Computed example of a mutant assay.
Amino acid sequence: MNFTEQSTSVIVGGHTGIGRALADALRERPGRVLVASRRSGLDVTDPSAVERYFEAIGTIDHLIFTAGSQAPGGQLLDMDLSTARAAFDTKFWGSLAVAKVGARYLRAGGSLTLTSGFLARRAVPGTFVKTAMNAALEAVAKVLARELAPLRVNVVSPGLTDSEAYAGMAEDARLAMLQRAANNLPVGRVGRPQDLAQGYLLAIDTPFMTGAVIDIDGGALIN
């Protein structure tokens, strides 16, 4: 779909990190880019709030969900499952709430792009919450690509990305973590939000792509 002055792209989770980088890239094109997140007052765990948000916007061309959640780490036997449920409420059920409502407002030929993560297909002890959420999103997206056709539905699966997601860590610990990861990746560095934005643009711009999972992980899955 060509971008015109009438094109509208909506990024849910676009105030920080990957979402913000994508918003910056889309703003270089014609049309309007709308960014929504908890920061702007949209709570994706509240279906009525999602309904009101899209009702106020009207018809859109592209819908991208990049909002994440603070998924708890740890092994099942030590996990407080209420925190795991809260993470699912935001990323998994929030994605589906946005998709359910947003799909009604997408123009013919429009696209819906969700976000998973490389742990969807990596068995790493202590990460079962992220693995379950992301694997579920990838599986559901393929079903939605059938149910919502001819709308296109794809998923971008990021690897470790240097973003605000790790802002709560002590700076020396954050840098050490990123360096360890970079040393173990075939590309020799971790991702940047701008790297990941290119994956979403690929999903948006490719009219022959639907039901795809786009891995942008520095080679993590082949390590």
Rank of each mutant, 00 (worst) to 15 (best):
A165F: 14
L201K: 12
A67I: 05
V98D: 01
R107G: 11
S157P: 10
G159N: 12
A165L: 15
T59P: 10
T4P: 07
A141R: 03
E5C: 01
G109Q: 13
I57M: 06
P207S: 03
A84P: 09
V10Y: 03
Q75N: 15
R121E: 13
A123E: 13
A49D: 00
E55G: 04
M133Y: 02
G117R: 02
L175Y: 00
H15R: 11
D162K: 12
V98K: 08
L22H: 02
R104A: 12
Y105V: 06
S82E: 13
S95F: 05
A173C: 00
I214R: 02
M133N: 09
G168I: 10
K142P: 00
A165Q: 13
Y105E: 09
G68L: 08
P158W: 08
T16K: 14
G191Q: 03
Q6L: 09
W93S: 01
L22W: 08
G73T: 14
G218N: 08
E171K: 09
G117V: 07
I204S: 04
A139L: 05
A56G: 05
G168Q: 06
A182G: 10
M1F: 08
S9A: 15
S69R: 03
L151D: 12
A87S: 13
T83Q: 14
I60A: 07
I204K: 05
N183K: 15
V50P: 00
Q194F: 01
Q179D: 15
L137I: 15
P125G: 09
G17W: 01
T4I: 06
R38D: 00
I18C: 00
A182D: 05
A67G: 07
M209W: 02
I222K: 13
G109E: 13
D43A: 07
L63P: 00
D43P: 04
F118C: 10
P158H: 08
S111M: 03
F208Q: 08
M1S: 12
S40L: 03
V187T: 10
G68H: 02
A170M: 07
L196H: 07
K130W: 00
V143C: 10
A167Q: 12
L175T: 09
D215E: 15
G188W: 03
V187C: 10
A56Y: 00
S111N: 10
D162Y: 09
T59H: 05
E28Y: 07
W93K: 04
T210S: 14
P47W: 03
A49G: 06
